[in-house]
Design a protein around this nucleic acid. Structure first.
Lengths: 338, 338
DNA sequence: GGCCATCGTCGAAGCGTTTCGACAGATACC
DNA sequence: GGTATCTGTCGAAACGCTTCGACGATGGCC
């Protein structure tokens, strides 16, 4: 492996000049630059990352902390990761993948040993124990999610409250007034990932404002969970005409159940789902849905990290506006039901 | 951030002694060791990764190259990644996540700049262009998959040929003689990820040896793809009594189709699926299946990398034996069909 | 024409480790 | 009791880069 000294010798300049050609931090004559670049190319020189990190105290590496348990939302997690890696590369950074289960120790390890310049975490819980640890690090961090006390730490997420409101507004706009919410599984609420609560809060608020009759219910995974949830919802709200489904896993069994019980979508029941686009389109009937914009969120997280590293200002809470895509699961309510 | 010098001063020893306490490469008296460790703990010292890499030419980082396109097999990819990260941590290594779409350039970048000690790649194609590049690197690499010419590069994967044979043997053991294979989508064959071919080859070989009547057919995604595939298979092989399904995505629509056409599983059609366990169990009828042992493969890949780094010997082609788990989708063939 | 900036380059001092050779003292061996 | 071998520790030299201060050469300005 050639070093910067080899390049310098080959180009007939000093090592510092090579460094300045590489970094652009000082003016270098076009001629010298050309010679240096030729030498770099010829020798196949790549600066040694460790040496660089040592000298400059910059690693050009971001930590990404992902929940690697095999979970319901694997595809979404993967989309976040994809977006983060891709965006990081656009800023000439690499990504070190950590698992959430290493907890605080993992964060401190990579931060204290100066392996990374910044951290991006996903799957934050309401009172996430990692947050106080993050505050103590010298590296900045960006959260994908919105834990309760995140003062001084940048957060990026979909605006789930607005998403709930948007779903209800859409349904109300089609004349629906009796609407059920099929929520995430109780495990999600228990885990205290706040998106479930934020969605629920937005749902209830919009429901009140729009003067709707609504019922909300969590939903255990599997066909049985869906059956139970729907039974409860139907019992509490007879003649409902629409459902909002904030539970990706429940979608398929829910559609099966409705089909089996002779309730047609959208003729008898309209549905708005909160789920990734590909899930919405892969169902027997294309679902009108609000996307989880994992790509945008991940990209934004990286951009935020970069701003922090540059010492620029950032918005500490950035909630992305939801977008609803109409497909075939919502219809104007039939006059008989008004 | 305290340095090794701070620790040395606090403990009243030289920096090299601290280093030897940390690495264990030279004997240190129990008393000195204790003092040094106390100083480390008190100061909260963490060695600087870059400095370490520079001095020792070891980074304790593995590159993991993952296909981050949002693909059919996202959950499996994720399981590989989980396993790799977890296993790496057990060897005190971290994982740098690269995307396949950076191609050869990405590998060379991280290797030449000494960011990683070894590379693990997944989703290898038959004549993968990255392989010649890997050979030129000074870092060893381990492949998850089995491209055609991999001499000198360690490979780890499930033995897909044996898996196909196992599936047929299981069915034949239950009296089935007319068996269809629902294969991966043509896109998979086109992409030349060799597992599809290896499975197919094993299937055909075992089919001949067991003297079975079989038909194989790729299967496009979606309900329509499954319908077409089954139509073709049925046309070529009337009265089939069993199916082998090597297409995770097709499973659900296939079961729907069989249900809709009044063919009961397993009474009319037995099924053996090649898919992750959770997929097999999440179907309406629990599927007898051969697992993709992503966790084992990922762990083994890391272990292999570690052996290579230690200069120990490795088996350059390691194909894991498949295991079949019986559930409720296979039954002894009814006498009338014999 | 003298003075100041600016440009382009160099040399040297770090950055924080690891590792090698050296060495003093203790221990073993015959 | 002298030599050889360990033990335990130290000092210093890398490792390969960035960055700061310095400095000669240009060029602009009044």
């Amino acid at each position: 492996m050639p070093t910067i000294n080899d390049v310098a010798r080959a180009a007939g300049v000093s090592p510092s000049t090579v460094s300045y050609v590489l970094s652009g931090r000082r003016p270098i004559s076009a001629e010298t630059r050309a010679r240096v670049q030729a030498a770099i190319a010829e020798l196949g020189f790549h600066p040694h990352a460790g040496a660089r990190a040592l000298a400059s105290s910059k690693t050009n590496v971001l930590a990404l902390v992902a929940p690697l348990r095999v979970d319901v939302n694997v595809p979404v997690i993967m989309q976040f990761a994809t977006a983060v890696v891709t965006a990081a590369r656009a800023y000439n950074h690499d990504v070190l993948l950590l698992t959430k289960d290493e907890g605080t120790a993992g964060l401190e390890r990579v931060a204290h040993s100066t392996m990374v310049d910044a951290l991006i975490l996903m799957d934050l819980e309401r009172d996430d124990l990692r947050i106080p640890a993050l505050r103590r690090l010298k590296q900045p961090s960006v959260l994908i999610g919105l834990p309760s006390d995140h003062t001084g730490i940048a957060c990026v997420d979909l605006d789930f409250a607005a998403a709930a409101r948007l779903a209800l507004e859409h349904l109300a706009g089609h004349g629906h007034r009796r609407i059920g919410l099929v929520g995430p599984s109780p495990a999600v609420y228990r885990r205290q990932t706040t998106y479930a609560d934020r969605f629920l809060a937005g749902f209830l608020e919009a429901s009140a404002e729009l003067d709707l009759r609504t019922v909300t219910h969590p939903c255990e995974p599997g066909a049985a969970g869906v059956r139970d949830a729907m039974a409860d919802i139907d019992a509490q709200l007879s003649d409902l005409t629409a459902l909002v489904v904030h539970n990706e896993e429940a979608l398929r069994p829910l559609l099966d159940l409705l089909h089996a019980t002779g309730r047609k979508v959208p003729d008898d029941v309209s549905i708005v789902a909160i789920c990734p686009q590909d899930v919405a389109t892969s169902m027997p009937v294309g679902l009108t849905s609000i996307d989880i914009p994992a790509h945008d969120v991940g990209t934004l997280a990286v951009e935020t990290a970069m701003r922090l590293l540059d010492g620029r200002t950032v918005e500490y809470t950035r909630l992305l506006a939801p977008a609803l895509v109409e497909r075939n699961s919502c219809t104007e309510i039939s006059p008989s039901h008004r």
